[in-house]
Design a protein around this nucleic acid. Structure first.
Lengths: 210, 210
DNA sequence: CCAATTTGTAGTAATGGTACTACAAGTCAT
DNA sequence: ATGACTTGTAGTACCATTACTACAAATTGG
């Protein structure tokens, strides 16, 4: 018997996923919850084969969730289901140990493919992401936290940036030329693959324990 | 015969809504689209009684959508279906002419109530919003949520800003001059007493449950 | 209902930020 | 120990954003 847990705060989404699963696999046991704590409680009660997890789930937020889940049930399959751009986040979640990353506008067919593959012990990658990997657009980086790729000076600048400092502020604080700070900023954006301060802040939040 | 159009970019959400409607009203005609232009094209082909509209739909620029829709089909009922905090946005949409505002985490029962009321020519207000109206909370600006001090257009710009859009991006999205967007940005910063995007994002996060 | 304020819109000059380039010193793997 | 990146630093020309100004229409307070 297959047990599936759906964790998403939108009722409609839980309903939609439930329908899709029932349509593919009429006999599975499905439970759905609308926040991360309930997901953990549910996992304490019963073994699950798969959890479908919205990365925006209240009480969860960010990559840490994956470790938390695996700590409870090491063999659970984790399918991330997100409204966020996969190019930005998919690899991070996969590297953190997720089994697949699906965007919410995926077609029904795509969703079924993902579920199918994951339940058959394969990883799921959208063709888009596979393409990226093939093109080497994403250097198969030595796993883990991209924040670690920042040099010391870059890290200092990054910290000021996510506190809202301007390039000019930073240049005064660190006694550097504007152009120097600007270079760091460019390098930080490149290393973390972000293109604006909001994404930078999100990414840093995602990789730092709070 | 009742015709219903669902405009939402998440396949799952369209599917979920479809299921709910079919369950209530087995005989209605339902069409679903994933962006605003397609919604308009669809409306050119056929008369619709109701459109269920995600405010984040690609190609739509927020409040204006309502007028655009009404221009095509003056009698269409408009139900806004949004992931955003209703306290912040519901009234703006209702005042702009929507017939109801539903948040995406509403229960299936609540969704059915909304659909039912609207199809029966009533407006739909969540009990939460009704409460607000009764308490006259709407006008009393000074205390309370500073986000409510933003005008409609300012709110649209604010939302794009906290998603990481640049002034230039926003000017394209909303079809405004750069200088206009810039003026809005300045006014938003002043009203919320922030001085950079990070503070803006923090403030907005702090005052919305979303 | 009239005056004051807010809102929606935009131009223009000035300021701030980025892209691209550069280079010496440091580190690393072979 | 040598060639290949990385790091720390900066100049400059160009692109993006802001400050300030403006004004008509809508809204609001009294």
């Amino acid at each position: 018997m297959t047990n599936i847990l759906i964790a998403d705060d939108h009722t409609i989404v839980r309903l939609g996923i439930t329908i899709i699963i029932r349509d593919m696999l009429p006999k599975v046991y499905i439970r759905d919850v609308d926040n991360f704590d309930l997901a953990l409680k549910e996992m304490a009660k019963r073994h699950y084969d798969l959890i479908i997890l919205d990365i925006n789930i209240p009480g969860g937020d960010n990559l840490q969730m994956i470790d938390v889940l695996r700590l409870r049930q090491p063999k659970i399959k984790i399918l991330i289901f997100s409204a966020y751009d996969e190019e930005l986040y998919a690899l991070r979640y996969l590297q953190a140990g997720a089994d697949g990353y699906l965007v919410k506008h995926s077609s029904e067919h795509e969703i079924k493919t993902a579920l199918h593959q994951i339940l058959n012990n394969e990883k799921y990658l959208s063709s888009n992401i596979r393409q990226h990997l093939v093109n080497g657009n994403v250097k198969t980086r030595p796993t883990g936290n991209p924040l670690l790729a920042l040099s010391n000076r870059e890290t200092e600048v990054m910290q000021l940036l996510i506190k809202g400092s301007s390039v000019a502020d930073i240049s005064k604080t660190l006694h550097l030329q504007l152009s120097t700070v600007s270079t760091y900023k460019t390098r930080i954006f490149a290393k973390l693959e972000v293109s604006n301060i909001i994404e930078l802040a999100d990414t840093v939040r995602m990789y730092s324990n709070n």
